[in-house]
């Protein structure tokens, strides 16, 4: 681990000052400390933001939900409002990491976590995300867990978060504060596809800080759920996953929110699946036909071709579970 200086801040202004001077924010630290030990991350200054008042879950005026950036994964998952209004978020969180890590890691940090690509984590390997212009060892390497959607010639790494998939499905917004004031960014625009600049992963400006993730109100009743498929039953990242929320009234699907994880360079929205569902009545053939559209545009690599079919089956199965038709 490279040496770093450490500063603890007690209010947002102080944090932004330190951040603007190039300090690196640390919250739960579960990704950052791990990667610092591997020398993948080499911050010179750590700014400890864990004392900031960003640790509340609140219901917004319009009936949405605001989860403070410093709410831990465990607290968010267990929160009565989260469990009542958006159980899919609790589900995605509790299927992530381990109980220990969920006690440490925060919602803001979860969104900011970096890829699990083994070549990114290995400083002796070529990786454009870690060392711009060095190449991508994963593209022709062992890429079984890598992305089939949203990749570029420069990077094929997936975003590892589960809850971010639920956030993407639910059209969440990321609330930010920075030197130029506060702003909100739709979740879909916050995390960036690699393109020609895989080292740039979020649409954050210098010194900006996530203050909360906000989920807008959705029409009720809303049935939802998160399905995660992985190599072992627990404590493992997704090979594929599906976050699905359906608003069904009068026997007709009025709204469908569908996103997939483990397959994209960012949490992957599935608008083609959503469009196929809206206005239709739940049925087994509908689920199958909609899921057939889940892998539109997929470009598998040598070792992850299986993900194309697995993704379709994951979406179909979760549609059946959430939609309630056998």
């Amino acid at each position: 681990m490279h040496p770093f200086s450490y500063t603890r801040v007690s209010d947002t202004g102080e944090a932004l000052d330190a951040g603007h001077r190039g300090g690196r924010y640390i919250a739960g630290g579960t990704t950052l400390v791990d990667l610092m030990r591997e020398t993948v991350e080499r911050p010179e200054v750590l700014v400890d933001i864990s004392g900031l008042p960003l640790d509340e879950v609140t219901v917004t005026e319009r009936g949405g939900l605001r989860i403070g950036a410093l709410v831990t994964m465990a607290e968010a998952a267990a929160h009565p409002k989260v469990r009542t209004l958006y159980p899919i978020i609790s589900q995605a969180l509790e299927l992530s990491a381990s109980a220990q890590l969920r006690n440490m890691a925060t919602i803001g940090g979860n969104v900011m976590q970096r890829t699990r690509c083994t070549y990114f984590r290995d400083v002796t390997a070529d990786c454009n995300k870690r060392a711009s212009g060095s190449g991508c060892a994963a593209r022709e390497g062992f890429n079984r867990t890598h992305a089939i959607l949203g990749a570029s010639d420069h990077c094929v790494a997936t975003h590892p978060s589960d809850v971010a998939v639920a956030f993407a499905a639910l059209d969440a917004r990321v609330r930010l504060t920075g030197p130029d004031g506060e702003r909100q960014v739709p979740f879909a625009d916050f995390l960036l596809r690699p393109g020609n600049t895989p080292q740039r992963e979020q649409s954050l400006r210098k010194g900006e800080l996530i203050t909360a993730v906000e989920i807008p109100a959705h029409p009720r009743p809303l049935t939802s759920g998160y399905l995660k498929v992985r190599d072992r039953q627990s404590y493992e990242f997704a090979l594929t996953s599906a976050a699905i929320a359906l608003h069904i009234r009068g026997g007709v699907i009025r709204e469908a929110k569908v996103a997939a994880g483990g397959v994209g360079t960012v949490p992957w929205k599935l608008p083609a699946v959503e469009r196929h569902l809206v206005g239709e009545r739940p049925s087994a053939p509908l689920w199958a036909a909609a899921a057939e559209r889940a892998a539109v545009g997929a470009r598998p690599l040598k070792h992850n071709r299986f993900k194309v079919e697995l993704l379709k089956r994951t979406v179909e199965r979760q549609l059946r579970i959430v939609g309630g038709t056998k």
């Binding site: 450490y6 579960t30 400390v33 791990d34 220990q100 890590l101 440490m104």
Partner: peptide, 23 residues
């Protein structure tokens, strides 16, 4: 030493955490 095995688990303020990832 990477938060993956749990052998370092301790309680901090009553909550179980991985002490290897705690500065």
């Amino acid at each position: 030493n990477a938060g993956a095995c749990g052998a370092c688990t301790v309680l901090v303020d009553g909550r179980r955490v991985n002490s290897c990832l705690t500065l």
